[in-house]
Design a protein around this nucleic acid. Sequence first.
DNA 1: TTTAATTCCTATTGACATAGTAGGAATTAT
DNA 2: ATAATTCCTACTATGTCAATAGGAATTAAA
Lengths: 151, 151
Amino acid sequence: MLISTKGRYAIRLMIDMAQNQAEGYLPLKSIAERQNISLKYLECIAGALTNKGLIKSTRGKLGGYRLADEPKNLNVGDILTVSQGGITTVECSGGKNSSCEKDCLAMPLWEGLDKVVNDFFYGLSLQDLLSSEEKNIYLIRKDKDDESICR
Amino acid sequence: MLISTKGRYAIRLMIDMAQNQAEGYLPLKSIAERQNISLKYLECIAGALTNKGLIKSTRGKLGGYRLADEPKNLNVGDILTVSQGGITTVECSGGKNSSCEKDCLAMPLWEGLDKVVNDFFYGLSLQDLLSSEEKNIYLIRKDKDDESICR
DNA sequence: TTTAATTCCTATTGACATAGTAGGAATTAT
DNA sequence: ATAATTCCTACTATGTCAATAGGAATTAAA
């Protein structure tokens, strides 16, 4: 699975903040209720986003979070990378982190995958997600059946 | 991780078979040695590929495997789907398998991801992998640092 | 100055998937 | 018969993910 719940929740968190943002700071509790996500878990995710400067926080009563910038300047790739701790497509890519041989003919495939995924995410802003009529009409490819797999 | 070892090994298995294929059948043992992959584990992967008709097998002495078709007719997406039991990008896509709300503004993002990944893999054949000079020169995007993630 | 609401920090747990191992049955050419 | 192979089923170890838990630090307001 390329995208975990952390990534999914982070995106929903950011969308919710964009939609409900007013003057002050939004308490996570309200977001957790609207999105029906565990508050404690959201805290963890919001913490990562705060550390990396995608959102801002204030503590104490009337505290909460707000977007660090306008939605059009907040990048989907960044949100996912920060919340998940990277977007790992396959072990053999990025060069360094691999026990994979450099001259393996499969390498260009993994590097291509990495590029395709990153280009997609880093080409979208939070603003792009706000209008459900996106630039793209995505055709959903039918799932293949997954029987006959050994365990 | 979108691609697991099963998927990676399956690709290497198929590439190896394409490169070393002659008249008869290739015993898995020779492939396991060349590729430095556990024979037993390869058996499992080859079994799935056989069941789905991507490769053919014969048992007994002089038995082994061979590609079921020419490399140009064998699809990379199929190889990965069969060996891994699907290419799962994110839980909220494909519609059915999700506890995810349909009107969620994040949905088009996940469907788009699914499409991008599938278009990439299903647009490549085994033959495309055989020439290391592919159609594509893939620029590797630098890994983001992944500190400040809560556990 | 107390109280309530919040972020922030660290640790723990349970469930599940992955990666691989193990042993042997069935098959087939020599 | 024998040796080499595919095929089948079960088991195990490890790690990651998702979530929970408890409380410390901070801040506005009563």
